[in-house]
């Protein structure tokens, strides 16, 4: 199908973009277009105005600043996949990107677009949740930052005001000896996951896990951290018994029930995949 008619705006600066957004309620921001374009083509959305962010050069880029990695909202998924900064500091993101769509969609799709579309099974929001990333947003009223934990307002809806645009996502890499895992189950490669699981483990000088983060995608309305499982792992030696017990917490969550999979099956996958992500992490320790 073809989109309903709309007015097209291609601002060259962030100030112009948020100015347009403030003037035109109901306008949609077009980033990589790998979700919005299908929604326009299928007429799931019929905005009067589309504001294209692709001509704003300052919104794309990966920068290391003060031990953090700041990624512009318009940075393409394919550029993240190939970035030495991502490979060095955020290796679990690189692993997760392999599961995001296909070459052709990663060539256009952006990190900001993924976060704002906020599909419950999408990989990049799960990675942002794993790292407690910080989302930067701007409007004509000013700039603010939002903790990733607060970013999902509800199903597929970010906690942005109608006149706000995402500008960047900032990650704090884990230092010291860390390990990571990312696994997912989908019916076909490149599909959204039925369930995905990601983990980050930090080890202290005594060889015990001193920090753990676990995230499930595809089970809830938004990516879900597993604080009970993280607590179970913290201070442990990370034996297979520790992992089995931690993974068991993943089965006690409330899961979505939809045409792709029932809630019971999702809970089962959540436990199995959490276990596999942890096993992958210790089988392949990062620096």
């Amino acid at each position: 199908m073809k989109p309903a008619p709309f007015r097209y705006h291609a601002p060259r600066s962030v100030a112009d973009a948020v100015g347009l957004l403030a003037e035109r309620p109901g306008a949609r921001l077009l980033s990589g277009g790998q979700s919005l374009m299908p929604m326009l083509n299928l007429r799931y959305v019929m905005p009067d105005d589309v504001i294209d962010l692709n001509r704003i050069d300052t919104l794309a880029g990966i920068a290391e600043e003060g031990g953090r990695v700041r990624i512009g909202g318009m940075t393409r998924q394919r550029d993240l996949e190939r970035s030495p900064v991502v490979a060095r500091h955020l290796p679990v993101m690189r692993e997760a990107l392999r599961w995001v769509g296909h070459i052709q969609t990663r060539n256009r799709g952006t990190i900001g677009g993924s976060l704002c579309h906020l599909d419950p099974a999408a990989e990049l929001p799960a990675i942002a949740m794993l790292y407690d990333a910080e989302v930067s947003a701007i409007s004509v009223r000013g700039e603010r930052s939002i903790a990733m934990a607060e970013f999902p307002a509800f199903y597929m809806t970010p906690a942005l005001e109608p006149d706000e645009a995402l500008t960047a996502v900032t990650f704090t890499p884990w230092t010291g000896r860390t390990a990571f895992g990312f696994v997912e189950f989908s019916r076909r490669h490149g599909d959204f996951a039925v369930v995905s699981a990601a983990c980050l483990l930090g080890y202290g000088p005594d060889g015990r896990i001193d920090r753990a983060a676990l995230v499930l995608g595809g089970v809830g309305a938004a990516p879900l951290r597993l604080p009970d499982a993280e607590a179970r792992l913290t201070g442990s030696r990370g034996t297979s018994e520790d992992f089995t017990e931690a993974a068991a917490f993943a089965e006690r969550i409330e899961a979505m029930d939809d045409a792709h999979a029932g809630a019971d099956y999702r809970r089962h996958l959540a436990r199995v995949l959490t276990g596999r992500a942890l096993a992958q992490a210790v089988a392949r320790p990062a620096a």
Binding site: Y8, A10, L30, G33, Q34, M37, P38, N41, D52, N54, Q104, T105, N107, R108
Partner: peptide, 10 residues
Amino acid sequence: VRGCLMLAAQ
């Protein structure tokens, strides 16, 4: 890229 997921204007 997907030709259907990019506007000609872009």
